[in-house]
Design a protein around this nucleic acid. Structure first.
Lengths: 191, 191
DNA sequence: TGAAGCACTTAATGTAGATTAAGAAATTAT
DNA sequence: ATAATTTCTTAATCTACATTAAGTGCTTCA
């Protein structure tokens, strides 16, 4: 299991005092599957780093259709960035898909950490830039690839996730209905 | 016209010495419409801040179809973030749509600026976070809204752009063919 | 243990948007 | 000015995917 300190150490090096300070401003929580950490309309006061388990963020369109923005498993971050930075109500839900342990950082503590450990600005800059790149790629894929191609990309990018999460959620991430996804999968298996 | 220093001052405050240092590491360039600043397959060694004019970034699918990732006019930044941070060949083109003046920052100078003015980490973190939020929103819109709704959002978000750029480029940004866009526009005008 | 609720499948039918093609209008180049 | 190129429009046809509906096999939990 990759710890949050190891995650940070990939990009900036903290002294052990700084590491201790960082940990003192965070809280580790055990979460049961199906827990909703954030609902649409709420303000996101926290961001999460996943130690183990799986979470997802999604929105709900016209009170009916869910669209998955992001899956997060071991070593990933998840949150509602819009609401977190604007401090306005967001439209994302965050849900635990598989029993999880997460490190919780509140916005308040996060700001204090920036003051006391300016190096963290660099770490979160790099985190945001990498996330931006992968969102840009996914956006372009949605504009230019077929559902089948998007699924293949998903498989090669997140090979471990495929066995673990219900396929209707993969369908939602890819951007197709569960029915079409099922048909598409059958077609791919014939090949 | 908003200068790059004013853009930075929105989020962090630099001393006048720091401002002078910043400017000394940048270069201002006049660009003619249709200039290609970056082509697919090249490494992006620079990022651009737009003083005036309009630029766009796009990719080309199967050597045929263009998809617009981003338009940038006065006060916006543009570049190929993937290539810029990974220093690998990217797949974006960057093109001048309307005669422009841009501030060019090379990756090398950018890194030196981070060393000499650590506050800039904060500025570019905030820039990346805001950009991430808007990409996330666009991604969710592409998953859940119809072409017509995406067009309406585009109009309310970039009202000034609509008159200035060829509508086939708006179609490409929205994610529809120029033919369908034309039909859709005619339908909207009837209402 | 069994029934209630999900997740998945299959199939018929419907539709938003793509493709193809051709002409009109606007820009750009000579 | 006029030819050449590009952009925009219109219309017919096509298709990838959505919708609706019905049935099957899991899981979950009284």
């Amino acid at each position: 299991m990759q710890s949050i300190l190891e995650n940070i150490a990939k990009h900036v090096s903290l002294t052990s005092d700084e590491e201790a300070l960082f940990l003192s401003k965070t809280e580790t929580k055990q979460l049961k599957a199906k827990t909703i950490l954030l609902s649409s309309g709420e303000i996101a006061y926290c961001t999460y780093f996943v130690n183990s388990g799986i979470l997802r963020s999604f929105n709900i369109n016209d009170n009916i259709i869910e669209h998955v923005l992001h899956f997060a498993c071991e070593g990933w971050w998840i949150g509602d960035m819009y609401s977190y930075i604007s401090e306005k109500p967001g439209n994302l839900f965050i849900e635990v898909l598989e029993d999880a342990e997460v490190v919780v950082i509140s916005k308040e503590n996060h700001q204090e950490l920036y003051k006391e450990i300016p190096k963290l600005e660099r770490f979160f800059r790099i985190l945001a830039e990498n996330s931006l790149v992968s969102h840009q790629e996914r956006l372009m894929d949605n504009l230019s690839l077929s559902a089948e191609e998007r699924f293949e990309k998903f498989c090669s990018k997140y090979p471990t996730l495929i066995q673990k999460i219900p396929q209707k959620q993969i369908a939602s991430y890819i951007g197709v209905t569960p029915e079409f996804f099922s048909k598409m999968k059958a077609r791919l298996l014939k090949k």
